[in-house]
Design a binder for these strands. Structure first.
Lengths: 338, 338
DNA sequence: CGCATGAGGTTTTACGTATAACGTCCTCTG
DNA sequence: CAGAGGACGTTATACGTAAAACCTCATGCG
């Protein structure tokens, strides 16, 4: 018996089954029909099972020149949202025999950091979200098939893009609030330079601006509950403020806004209506429950992976943004309901 | 010029620099001192840079017989906690030239699912959290070095374990509540068979039970806000209930308990003190802010990875649980403060 | 002078797999 | 009954890398 420390190879299986290594490869690769008899094939499979044989992926990858592994680049993983994106992408990948490796960029990727240094596996393609342009060009230089998530279709260096229909979500929020009678808006915006946030600002301004007698102020905050609380408190404390509707770039910012409102003695939604965007677990944990736009993160990841598979396959990925849905809960109501 | 579609190999670099492939390997592998002149080495590096050479990982892995890639098995990724574990593990891994591949087991791993099917990369080792025993033995059968997170040190088939000091956290919670004067406890327990939850129940019973005149009831719920709300509401609605302190197995359950309390008209903490465990973003988003036990997920991941690196290195991983910390906030106070 | 030593390389090999190219028989058909 | 082809394999090769083994000069030293 060979030393237990070294794993059996296809040659070991061949020897055990009394055939050549090539036959083992044919049988286990399911390419044996017409080449190997059914009884021999069964003998090979049995030997493989007995020995606990597992193909050496490194050797296979080398031989085939592909790895069936893709890289997913996300800003930070420690959020429900991107964890969901990963889960969706990984599920579709697994269905097609692919694996997904993560590259969570801690502080945005700069030229000094190499997205591939941490990806030990060789890669067949890349799905990237919200990346700095320099890292993007570094990837392009590698000639790897690339799909961009939530980024400007115009400025993506020709890469395929898969986007959530954020603009439509903001449109729904604006119309919901306008319909309730709100006229004075505050936009609590994420302090992050990313196309997905630019879209929010642009669409909100366009929708609200199309109605006479309205106003939209903007204040920026880092994406954290504390940061949002501070920014919202400062903006709302302004004595001249007549704001009745606070539109937040995401749910975390909205959670911060809740605390700001509480400290200022503003009741939600009587004195101030608040909306979020994401629909995290957070949204139903706070009181009142948050009116927000549901983004299906897993679906987003699934679409991203499907698009990449299409590119790898030489096909053209489907066009079209992923629909989002306004979920109305208790944090919005008519202004001045007191 | 070679077709742009095929990436340059070390042989291409060698040709460009006018040396042999071996020389390229020596220089780029930083093993050239005393074997190649400094000027030649520089010439090789320049050629590599010009061609945009990147070593083929599959070939390297095959040659070296190791991949510097480990698998992290987590119950679900879509939670702050396990996303944090990944982030910590990946950081330490990167520092040592390792990569981390994820295996998120959707519904607990059964024998039908193969933890390795989705891991395209060949693996050097495994870090596993809260796994079903059958998958565990499957992994053991592969002879891969294994580190278990938060699992029974006695029943881990001889694998190294890295644990958070959950018992101490529960102890701190119990003493905090006992010190405030609480005597009637309800334990809102996670409906998941896992060692880490068993520890909570055992320790709570031991601590509270050591004081005369106390009682602990238990009710179980799935780990979701809705499930927790339903279970807590049912348990608290019992007219004979004199419960003043509700100890939850994690923050998400606590968030559900908040909603149950609200619906029953119980004020927090005046009528009911509530504690959680995790210290997610959720904990400071709800009102009042949640008294909970802070688990440092990233640190947990770091320790797990360090332990695995030690095993891979033939060393013995450090012993000792990772300390946790009670964070007292507004959700706990003396009983009957009304 | 004779030979060890070391600098500066090159040639060769192995890692484990997938598959193209190549052999045997044996049977069927015209 | 010749030979075409199918059934059932085997042999040989390449993927790109790391590193062991080897080679060739100078130079130094006794």
């Amino acid at each position: 018996m060979a030393p237990a420390s070294t794993r059996p190879t296809s040659r070991d299986v061949a020897q055990a089954a009394g055939v050549s290594q090539a036959a083992v490869s044919l049988v286990l690769g399911d390419k044996w029909r017409g080449r190997v008899s059914a009884t021999t094939a069964e003998r090979v499979r049995e030997a493989a099972r007995d020995l606990g044989y597992r193909p050496n992926l490194a050797a296979r990858n080398l031989r085939l020149g592909r790895t069936r592994t893709v890289l997913l680049v996300v800003p930070v993983l420690t959020t429900e949202f991107f964890a969901g994106v990963y889960t969706g992408a990984a599920r579709v990948a697994a269905e097609h025999g692919f694996g997904v490796v993560l590259y969570p960029s801690p502080e945005g990727i700069g030229p000094a950091r190499d997205p591939f240094a941490s990806a030990q596996a060789a890669l067949d393609g890349v799905i990237a979200s919200s990346m700095a342009a320099d890292a993007l060009t570094a990837i392009r230089g590698d000639q790897l098939p690339l799909v961009m998530l939530d980024s400007d279709p115009e400025g993506s260096l020709g890469a395929a893009t898969v986007n959530l229909d954020i603009a439509d979500g903001v449109r729904q929020v604006a119309e919901h609030l306008l319909g309730l009678g709100h006229r004075d808006f505050l936009h609590l915006a994420a302090d992050v330079p990313s196309w997905t946030f630019e879209v929010r600002a642009r669409e909100l301004a366009a929708r609200v601006g199309s109605v006479a007698g309205t106003s939209v102020r903007t204040t920026r905050a880092p994406i954290s509950i504390e940061g949002a609380q501070a920014a919202a408190e400062a903006a709302l404390a302004d004595p001249g403020s007549r704001v009745t509707a606070l539109v937040c770039d995401d749910d975390k910012l909205a959670a911060g806004a809740y605390k700001a409102a509480r400290r200022l003695g503003l009741r939600i939604p009587d004195d101030l209506s608040i909306t979020g965007l994401d629909d995290l677990a957070l949204a139903t944990a706070i009181d009142p429950e948050l009116t927000t736009v549901r983004l299906d993160a897993e679906l987003f990841g699934e679409h991203g992976m499907r698009a990449l598979l299409a590119v790898l396959d030489g096909r053209v990925p489907e066009e079209g943004d992923i629909p989002v849905e306004l979920v109305v809960r208790g944090s919005t109501g008519p202004p001045g309901a007191a």
